[in-house]
């Protein structure tokens, strides 16, 4: 699973190894029925991380505010279900996507005019604004108590969300499959290549006449849309939304997952959440202090020694193995 860089000489066909995540996901469905709710959470976070990879890894936009779109999607789906009595999961998801897209284009058009620290600051400020709104608009959001009473009708009127989480798992898997397919397609397209061009040298992209700003706004909006969908999914599977969807820790955690897996290589967004969320499930509740200490240390180590994340390490091991006679 080497870095998926796209480009004009990259073969866009799906390699056999790329079926591995899906085989694992289906195998997990049958082999680990008692872990399906964790599984669904992982699938959602993969989709969420994938959306972040698009802007951080490919377009090179450093953001701490991606939870704004995830959180908005989560609340929109939740409010539709709990307050407006709209139980259809497809409608909820579409609304979450639309909300993510609208906020994405609105905020993206503003913040992408700036660079570096100012941009980082603005992403943080926007998320903080969203958090404040969710916190204060208690009539809609339930404020600090969270929004409960989220009711999700059967999918297409046929598949009921069961207590074992089987439907939710497969539903999330399908959503991820569609999201992955779209993101992959985009990365291999001329548009995706032009994004890596902006990441590598935005000055030169301007000089070859590329509308850099609009490209970034577009990818930012697409990414926000996917994050909105991921947020909608988390509401539907948890049947609850809390303020933590907007928290800085959650945005930070997402970045951690992506970095852990590997940035700018599609499957880093798969590996990171799997490792992170499983480790969290095993360790975090028993040893919360050690958990935070552990991720902190890991982040520092990854930045210092393994900038490609887990997949980057795998890559270099593979290269070494191949070099051996």
């Amino acid at each position: 699973m080497s870095a998926h860089a796209g480009g004009y000489s990259a073969d866009p066909r799906i390699r056999w190894i790329e079926s591995l995540p899906w085989i694992v996901a289906v195998a997990a469905f049958f082999a680990l029925p008692e872990y399906l709710s964790l599984g669904a959470r992982i699938l959602i976070y993969i989709l969420y991380a994938l959306s972040l990879d698009l802007i951080v890894g490919y377009a090179g936009i450093v953001t701490l505010g991606h939870s704004a779109y995830f959180g908005l999607g989560a609340y929109v789906a939740g409010i539709l279900a709990a307050k407006a009595g709209i139980g259809d999961p497809m409608v909820q998801l579409a609304a979450a996507a639309a909300a993510g897209a609208l906020l994405g284009i609105g905020t993206g058009a503003i913040i992408l005019r700036t660079k570096a620290l100012t941009l980082l600051m603005l992403t943080l400020a926007i998320t903080s604004v969203m958090l404040e709104i969710a916190n204060k608009a208690t009539a809609l959001t339930g404020g600090a108590d969270g929004l409960s009473g989220v009711i999700v009708a059967p999918i297409f009127g046929l598949f009921r969300f069961d207590i074992f989480g089987k439907t939710a798992y497969l539903y999330c898997l399908l959503a991820l499959l569609i999201g992955w397919w779209l993101v992959r397609k985009m990365i291999y397209s001329p548009f995706g290549t032009s994004l890596t061009g902006v990441r590598e040298n935005s000055l030169r992209m301007h000089a070859i006449g590329a509308p850099v700003y609009w490209r970034l706004v577009l990818v930012y909006t697409l990414s926000a849309t996917i994050a909105g969908v991921a947020g909608g999914l988390i509401t539907q599977t948890n049947q609850f939304v809390g303020l933590n969807v907007f928290s800085f820790e959650s945005a930070g955690e997402l970045l951690v997952m992506l970095i852990l897996g590997g940035v700018g290589r599609i499957y880093g967004a798969f590996v990171g959440p799997v490792v992170y969320l499983i480790a969290q499930d095993l360790l975090a509740k028993q040893f919360p202090e050690y958990w935070y200490f552990g991720i902190g240390t890991m982040l520092v180590l990854v930045v210092m020694f393994a900038r490609g994340g887990i997949l980057g390490i795998l890559d270099s091991i593979l290269v070494k193995l191949r070099r051996r006679p």
């Binding site: 796209g6 480009g7 004009y8 000489s9 990259a10 073969d11 866009p12 397609k185 985009m186 291999y188 397209s189 001329p190 548009f191 995706g192 290549t193 032009s194 590329a210 490209r215 577009l218």
Partner: peptide, 10 residues
């Protein structure tokens, strides 16, 4: 063609 999104660059 740089803004095309659905067909592969290659």
């Amino acid at each position: 063609v740089a803004r095309r999104m659905l067909r592969a660059a290659s």
